[in-house]
């Protein structure tokens, strides 16, 4: 069996050489090079968007659907992209919206209580062939799962992706002050949950 790929940590990642965003946009805006531009965009961003969506949606199959939908939407809407926002934050904005919209639809369909949802998530993680985290990581994901969806997005973007509050503000259309408050609140809740499990 082949070894699954794990997301490299921001601290250890060796970024491959990627095309500059300006070049990608220029290629995409030119009908003659649109394919080249979109391929460059995928090469640079598809993995990052996948991991971002995966942390929100949790299951690989669901994530795959959401990310494909998101990238097709990016291709269709790239003509309306305006340079006054960064390509990176624009892509994260679309991906976040797609993921949150998916979760909202999933909740509408579900007949289970919120507590059941959280238990189910923990079971899903344990059973997921593509979740190979240890007990501490499982506990962290369970604690994160108890946050409201938008706060989860805030926590994940800051904790795992080290995104600045300014960029998060563009992604989530929320003021930096509100984001800081949301992140601090999320961190305190998760810390409390960790202390309850491991008092020492």
């Amino acid at each position: 069996m082949s070894v699954p790929i794990r997301k490299p940590s921001p601290q250890t990642v060796q970024e491959p050489v990627h095309t500059e965003d300006e070049q990608i946009i220029a290629w995409i805006k030119d009908p003659g090079t649109v394919d080249r531009g979109f391929r460059a965009l995928l090469a640079k961003y598809q993995e990052r968007l996948y991991w971002h969506v995966r942390r929100l949606v949790i299951e690989h199959e669901d994530t795959n659907d959401v990310v494909q939908e998101c990238l097709v939407k990016v291709y269709r809407k790239i003509g309306s992209f305006r340079k006054d926002s960064g390509l990176y934050t624009w892509l994260y904005r679309i991906a976040t919206n797609e993921a949150l919209s998916f979760l909202r639809k999933q909740k509408r369909k579900a007949t289970r209580s919120i507590d059941d949802e959280e238990l189910l998530l923990a079971e899903k993680l344990k059973a997921d062939a593509y979740f190979d985290g240890d007990a501490a990581q499982l506990h962290l994901q369970r604690a994160v799962a108890q946050l409201p969806d938008k706060q989860r997005a805030v926590f994940n973007l800051r904790y795992f992706e080290e995104m600045s509050y300014q960029d998060m503000s563009e992604v989530l259309s929320t003021s930096t002050g509100a984001l800081k408050a949301s992140y601090h609140h999320a961190v305190k809740k998760i810390e409390k949950s960790m202390v309850a499990i491991e008092p020492n």
Binding site: V3, I5, Y50, R55, Y130, G133
Partner: peptide, 19 residues
């Protein structure tokens, strides 16, 4: 620093092609 999630090795190549 990792989150514990993973994918199969050829996944991103397949994703790109599929998109």
């Amino acid at each position: 620093p990792e989150d514990g999630f993973s994918v199969h090795p050829s996944y991103f190549r397949e994703l790109e092609q599929s998109v």
